[in-house]
Write a protein that binds this DNA or RNA. Sequence first.
DNA 1: ATTAAACACTACAAGTTTAGTAGAGTTTCA
DNA 2: TGAAACTCTACTAAACTTGTAGTGTTTAAT
Lengths: 151, 151
Amino acid sequence: MISQKARYALRALLALAEGKSPTIGEIAEEQKIPRKFLEQILLDLKYQGLVSSRRGRSGGYELHMPADQITFGRVLRIIDGPIAPLPCLSRTAYKPCNDCRDEKTCEIRRVFARVAESARDVLDRVTIAEAMQKPGLAEVGDLSETEAKSA
Amino acid sequence: MISQKARYALRALLALAEGKSPTIGEIAEEQKIPRKFLEQILLDLKYQGLVSSRRGRSGGYELHMPADQITFGRVLRIIDGPIAPLPCLSRTAYKPCNDCRDEKTCEIRRVFARVAESARDVLDRVTIAEAMQKPGLAEVGDLSETEAKSA
DNA sequence: ATTAAACACTACAAGTTTAGTAGAGTTTCA
DNA sequence: TGAAACTCTACTAAACTTGTAGTGTTTAAT
């Protein structure tokens, strides 16, 4: 499960990708996100260069880069940390599993490497811009599972 | 990230799949799992019918079903709960996302549905028996990412 | 210059989860 | 009958999650 915070971050970015420069308050109300919590999230995203802000009387937020350069994976790593299901499979925060004898022969690692790869395959490719597109148009990948309430 | 507890559970099951009937202490020592913690894990797996135990003087544990009928997904759901990245995508524990206006048009849900499906694709297919096989043999899926330390 | 509206930053806190530990009880077999 | 093994419940420290609170700083309009 991704965190509520990450969901809020993605929602906020999708809102900013509309192109306006809304205030925190406007985003919070429109997206039903607790306002002070959203402040912190937007600060995180700002520190990482995804959004920029204008202070003062008619301030607000906007994307600091094109929406088609912001992947879901990038957002998740900022908010939730590594995507990999095992520390020993993380690209961004590698750590050996403390109970693992030998990574090269670890059966668990081998299986989860496949999970990690397929997750990255989606998350590091799909951008905020793509996610905004209505389905039914030409799509990057296969979206046929939209109707199946599964997993 | 899957929990340490789930990793212990998978490790214990892989050990039991060797076919012997080891004691908790033997598994704990061999797999470097805290003994009392492992007791609880094995009890969970027993309640769910994956393993069975013999008490008393020469007791021990063994698999209660063929290793090729125990998928990683089943173990993860027992120990860690739902696999889905969003509550609204869980097959086993569906819950609406509280901040979501409309599931059918939710952009976030649409993207994570793809992640969920590909994760299930691996986890609900790969069994303890398959994981034990040495690589290099004929394999079910594609295992070519074994050498890439990524995600 | 003042002031109101907006962002910036830090601290705190309740609740939950994680990763165990502890200990008393029960069963079996030699 | 006693030692070795599983069974079961309770407890706990630390970390994480999901916020709330409050103070400060900047900007634009007046």
